[in-house]
Design a protein around this nucleic acid. Sequence first.
RNA 1: GGGGACGUAGUUCAGUUGGUUAGAACGCUGCCCUGUCACGGCAGAGGCCGCGGGUUCGAGUCCCGUCGUCCCCGCCA
Length: 607
Amino acid sequence: MCGVLRASDAGKKAVLMGWVNRRRDHGHLLFIDLRDRTGVTQVVFNTDRDAAVHEKAESLRNEYVIAVTGTVKLRDANTINPNMPSGEVELVAEELRILNESKLPPFLPGDTALTHEETRLKHRYIDLRRDVMQFNIETRHKVAKAIRDYLSAQGFFEIETPFMTRSTPEGARDYLVPSRVQPGTFYALPQSPQMFKQILMISGFDKYFQIVRCFRDEDLRADRQPEFTQIDLEMSYPQPDSVWGVVEGFLRAAFAAAGYEINPPFPRMDYDEAIRLYGIDKPDLRLPPFTDVRECLAAENVQELAINPNLPVIAIRIPKVGDLSRKERDDIKPMFHSKGGARVFEDFKRIANRYAATAEAVAKKLDAGEGDLIVLVAGAAQASCGENGAAFASHRKVTPQELAIYTSAGLLRLALAQKYAERHQCFQKGDFRFLWVTNFPMFEWDEAEQQWMAAHHPFTSPHEQDMKLLAEGVEALHDPLSPLSAVRALAYDVVLNGTELGSGSIRIHRRDVQSRIFRALGMNEEEAKARFGFFLEALDYGTPPHGGIALGLDRMVMILAGAESLREVIPFPKTARAVDLMVDAPTPVSEKQLKELGIAVKKPAGL
RNA sequence: GGGGACGUAGUUCAGUUGGUUAGAACGCUGCCCUGUCACGGCAGAGGCCGCGGGUUCGAGUCCCGUCGUCCCCGCCA
């Protein structure tokens, strides 16, 4: 245990085993920093004490694996190293065994500059020796263990569900596994154990959880891997509150395990409110929300700036950015991506010069301090007001035109917050702002398909009060004005600092409601049976009300570790092209294997 | 599928307007050094400038293609 020796161990005999982290050769005096996962301790080899051992130590090189027997010695006051936890002591070597030599690694775990990620991934076993990676993986273990312990104590059973299961094409693409026994047929790796955990509720395991791998064959991002780990749970007879309580409980335990105290319950916010205040369904609460400053603008302002008077005028405020140069102000405009009819007024100074009174009113309403950055986003006066606008408004609180402004402003808010993070200082490590976002819409309008789609998944229960709207809307799948637009789902997301940590819902437990939802999604009874027959059948046999949630473990650990990418908290991750650079997967397989599976591969041109 | 950034020594990087023999630091090898801890000193080795083609008297540098890594959009019920 190279990192655990302290002053209190002085005088003891010790055997340390580990890697040579660094070597400092002073001729007759040789220092080796010996490293294992607990840390580093200095070992001293001295010709005065034992010339033979010292000579053997001369041959040591970086990353050799050695065992050293010696005596723990308190260092002289002037040789104490306050920068390392074991810096008050050192091991005086009496015996050295070289357990294994090492080739010169492409990079050293103790290097200060970080090597290009491609090299790190190819030699991941060396990269994982770095103390940051050791810490991240340890954090991951502690978090997972805390969650297991907490949920077990709450009466949850951890139950495994199959990895080789049935493809139910909808949503993400499946990873497929060909069957040899039945050529031409395929298993699918689960995108989530959704239907299995619901069936476990039907089976009477009324509190289930699983820390489980999920698979989605979609393009990767810094926060998206093709295989990832979810904390999946489901319980019978819950209200949303009871699920939230469980999640808040295990998150408190998990964060405590990583050394952070958080204080549930978390605040809650309607989906519509999140859109209106933050322009996004996963608000980052560390920065101020929008303010609608339409009322601060005089009629002539609206006229001259070509602003649509019937739509909100959003003021984005980023605190303490300080004065921006002309160029910095000009740089804001390209960061703005209009989602349709939204315009940005990035130069508040110019507005202040032209309309002093208006600017003052806006600043006052925002309660803006000295140096706060203010950017306005409004609807363009001549923007084509969707002819459906008025009708939409009757169903939903936020119209599509308003949504365009809110989401455009929301994206700009995040981009500005990121860009000026060092100035506003609102992104401090250890500042965790959780939020429950609730009452999502049940359906989303798909412009391409010209129909309503499930916003969450088709097993999500609608609000009891909205069942009537559902009944009315069920035959109006292709009508953008359908009452379906106003149906709210008993769905909820847990959000942390602008990241969606998890998503869940109260499920449908009644077969008739489930059928109606499938019908509302344009699936007739036969189609529904073909895809989910086993599940629909199960619903017929006394299904208790149930609900649950799934949280991304990787994302949680990433935030706890202060990492920028999931790859920093996954031991063996994949690159943007879904390749494992260390084992070099995926690969072609032999003709023999393919033949057994009854698979013929169309070779890409050029091979 | 689309947009952007990058690719030079084992590693991190520099390389001017296209111009002689492509540099630095760390690491590596050898020698020296008894209190360093990112030890120090001296000497040395180490390069298909990602790959292929083109322009040019001349290409690390310009152009086209290609491969790889990263970031973003689409996508992720």
